[in-house]
């Protein structure tokens, strides 16, 4: 058999193997109901602004607690094992990565979508400030 055919064959086999094994690394954004399995998932939602937020740096700087509403409207407490992110209150959308444990979502990663600083309305606001 031609050697380059063998090489191509090996590469294709390797590619398929990687593809199959990597499909485990991929998940959809979950909601809290789907997180009940206890696996590590990413949950998308919004900050529940009417519920308390707690960050006590003196007690434990690596723990910030808040409530989040997922896209199905379920609200659960989230404990983020990190200092409270900046501009947290301003976030429009939150993605937390972690596991649900005893009905509390423990997150070790957070991504926030904040209103773009390039919004047109801002020009008018600026005028009043100056």
């Amino acid at each position: 058999m031609n050697r380059s055919v063998i090489i191509a064959f090996i590469l294709i086999i390797a590619g398929i193997t990687v593809f199959l094994s990597a499909s485990k690394d991929v998940s959809t954004y979950a909601n809290f109901a789907q997180a009940a399995s206890g696996d590590k998932v990413k949950v998308v939602g919004q900050l529940a602004k009417d519920k308390p937020m707690e960050y006590d740096a003196q007690n434990n700087p690596n723990q910030f607690s808040f409530y989040m509403k997922d896209d199905k409207g379920v609200v659960k407490q989230v404990i983020l094992h990190q200092p409270k992110p900046q501009d947290f209150e301003m976030s429009e959308q939150i993605v937390v990565t972690g596991k649900l444990h005893n009905d509390i979502f423990n997150a070790n990663e957070i991504l926030m979508k904040c209103p773009s600083k390039y919004k047109n309305e801002e020009i008018a606001v600026r005028e009043q400030q100056d």
């Binding site: 740096a57 003196q58 434990n60 700087p61 690596n62 723990q63 094992h81 990190q82 200092p83 972690g98 596991k99 444990h101 423990n106 070790n108």
Partner: peptide, 19 residues
């Protein structure tokens, strides 16, 4: 950080900050 947490996350990441 001295606060070891619940064993949910074992990685160093969750306790790398101090006050």
């Amino acid at each position: 950080n001295p606060f070891v947490f619940k064993n949910i996350f074992n990685d160093e990441d969750v306790k790398k900050y101090v006050q």
